[in-house]
């Protein structure tokens, strides 16, 4: 999941969270999670003062953002002292799978 400004949203991206008018949960709900964005929908959202949306995957590369390789390297480093422990090793695998999925998974570009 990644939060992106509406101006970077593209048709085909999939919403990871519900969107509310004005971008605040107190606002009127406009469209739900799992909706596939279209150009018309993006224009509508923009007109309704929605500034950012959460989308599946990690479609936009941000300034200073890490690549998946860098992220996995940092993960290895963090687990350096405890990889031998069975529970930690399980946690490591879960995190690795999660990172891989969130960076490249569905909706990723």
């Amino acid at each position: 999941m990644q939060q992106i400004p509406i101006m970077l949203a593209k048709a085909g991206m999939v919403l990871a969270k519900d969107v509310f008018r004005g971008g605040v949960p107190a606002g009127m709900p406009i469209c739900g999670k799992d909706t596939v964005l279209t150009d018309a929908l993006i224009t509508r959202l923009d007109q309704m003062d929605v500034q950012t949306v959460y989308v599946d995957g990690h479609p936009v590369w941000e300034e200073g953002g890490q690549s998946i390789e860098e992220m996995l390297q940092a993960l290895d480093k963090r687990f350096e002292k405890c990889r031998e422990e069975p529970l930690n090793s399980m946690l490591y695998d879960i995190y690795k799978a999660h990172l891989t999925k969130s960076m490249g998974g569905e909706g990723g570009r």
């Binding site: 999941m1 990871a16 480093k77 963090r78 687990f79 350096e80 002292k81 405890c82 422990e85 529970l87 930690n88 399980m90 946690l91 879960i94 995190y95 799978a97 999660h98 969130s102």
Partner: peptide, 30 residues
């Protein structure tokens, strides 16, 4: 900078398992 070892006593006290942990990681990251 290093992840601490998960203490077995905590794991057992909470009766955790791999599935709970995997779901939890996804929820936390979101």
């Amino acid at each position: 900078s290093f992840v601490p070892v998960i203490q077995k006593v905590a794991w057992d006290t909470l009766k955790l398992n791999e599935q709970i942990l995997a779901e939890l990681v996804a929820e936390i990251e979101d």
